[in-house]
Every structure is written in C-alpha cells, then in structure tokens.
Amino acid sequence: MARGLHWGMAVLVGVQLALGAMAVTWRVSPAKVELFFWHKSLGFLIFALLALRLAWRAVDRAPPLPAAMPDWERTAARANQALLYALLALLPLSGWIVNSAANVPFRIFRIVPLPAIVPPDEAVTRAFARVHLGFAMLLLLAVAAHAGAAWRHHRVRRDDVLARMLPWGGRT
C-alpha cells in the first residue's frame, strides 16, 4: 500500500509538473485552458492521495532506517521527507489561492465545484503564482535529493533502502 501510493504519486507528480510547465507557457488557446484544467484537477487528486498517504503512514509505520546510518544522514533524510510532504500539500493550496484570486470558476474533473478561498485580486494572483512556481522548483530539488539519496543507499552503501521500496520488490 505504502509503495503503491509512493510510486503512484511519483508518476502523478511528474505528469503534474509537466502539465503545469506546459500550461503556463502555452499561448492563449483552448489547449491552454485544457492544460490548466487537467493540472488543477490532478493537483486535487494528488492532495487527496497525500492525505490518504499520511493517514496510512500513521497506521502502518515505515520500516526503520539502516542501523549503520550516521546521525546527520538520518536528520537529512527526515528533513527532506518532511519537506516533500509539506510541498505536496503547499503546492495544491497555493494553486487553489491562485485560482481563487484569479476568480476562475473551476470544477475538479468537471464534477466538484471548487469554492474560492480568497477574494478576487490581481496582485494576489500574481504573487501566489510566483509562490506556486517557487514551491514547484523546491519540489524538483527535494525530489532530486531524495532520488540521489536512494541511489547512494543502493550503490554506495549497498543496503536495502531502495530495493525494499521498488514496486517489484518483495514485501519486507
């Protein structure tokens, strides 16, 4: 379950970053509107999956880190993981603020109407669009650090941290 959520969200977040980058750079057209529509809908799906994932984590504790890991690595691993979770929540929230301030009506997957959480304001729209972009950049860095650390566990430390997380790996 934890692995399924991890890899499922990894794929969705990758698609989401690509959609977001395409949506903002696309020339104004119906295609741009569609890109934003899918970006926003997917954002709420990721937000919901994050909630599910944190709930699951509270019930089913993650396996312990290898005993050989020095303290600074443990701290760094926990800090980066906390940053990843925080960004996965802050990105949809800041996007929601952008959408609200821009006063754009939106139904998640054309089904659930999204209420506005801030009043219409162009300055707020621009400011939070920058915040949203900043969070996305930070997420890319955090994901790179996370993947780099996993690779280091596998190739340098030669422990099972990456292997036990792989979708095709056996249950540990």
């Binding site: 509107v33 529509f37 754009v104 009506p105 939106f106 139904r107 054309r110 109407p113």
Partner: peptide, 11 residues
C-alpha cells in the same frame, strides 16, 4: 448582464 459558460461553469 450576460452569462457565458467556461469548462462547464457559468461565468
């Protein structure tokens, strides 16, 4: 006043 529709929502 007028009401247009955008992505299935009234604007």
């Amino acid at each position: 006043e007028f009401v247009a529709t955008f992505e299935g929502s009234a604007v």
